[in-house]
Amino acid sequence: MTAVQLAHLYKTFTFNRGWGRQRKQTEVTAVDHISLNVPEGQAIAFIGPNGAGKSTTIKMLTGILHPTAGTATVLGQVPWRDRRTLSRQIGVVFGQRSQLWYHLPPRDTLELLARIYDLDPQDYRKRREVLVERFGLSEFWSTPVRKLSLGQRMRAEVAASLLHSPQVVFLDEPTIGLDVLARQELRDLICEWNRQEGVTVFLTSHDTGDIERVAQRVVVINHGRIVLDAPVSQLRQQYLSEKILSVQFHTTILPFPILSGVRQLEATDYTLKLEIDTRLMPIEQVITQVLQAGSVADMAIEDPPLDAVIAHIYTQPAEERSP
């Protein structure tokens, strides 16, 4: 069953500049006819550069903004029309917007949220216990939010968004500003919740680690349009034709020949690191040349970092994109 469905979703913002007769209206397209289906239980990464339209899309899907044209449904409901009903079934975390009370401990915010969502006191207590345990909230349960680290705050933030057992969770840059360890912890928790509870996750992030660790599918948008929609596992294998070949030799290597589509990233007496564009040069031909260069001790073929893949997608002309 489909959890989130977008059909030609379109949103423009109008800006007025100047005075009197000089006054002009400028229309900026934030989301440009996006169509997308997200099945229930899937974790999708919705990524793109700043100003690509990610947050605007999430705001329309959560009922905050009305689209200029097009339709969208979340769990069968139109978000901007059925906002209040839908909000009982979705959870939202804005990395830059907190729903925790700054001067009060997470405990108080969760109690207030239980009241806002009209949770049955017994159900609330059970759910709270689960969240406190799974998100490790007990260590700072009674500490005012202003005294928490950013990582602790985000854990509490995500836990708060899950209090009313939502079926779909929208996470808008949840790991923004977190250190490596805190990011890893939060990713694991989101992943766990997605796999064990079957919660549909709609994630936006600039962090490729979030995408790799949490999402099963990646949708890249730029200038308000979808430029790529593919499984994460296929993204690096199918999308980018470049490979990194790292070789270690037993003996000093002979000078490596210049080959079309092959760039030497690193070369010492005993090691060689090459970047190969497989569209120009088959990898086996490069390996043949490597074997002739010296006695090979070890060899590894790697994909380039996902960061580089994403950056490449953003800069690539539309006709070259092939999901």
């Binding site: 906002r83 909000s87 907190s98 806002i116």
Partner: peptide, 16 residues
């Protein structure tokens, strides 16, 4: 733009 958080709750917006 700080009405966002308030619009995510199942309550009538203004009185809440």
């Amino acid at each position: 733009g700080q009405l966002d958080v308030w619009m995510l709750y199942p309550r009538v917006l203004l009185p809440h």
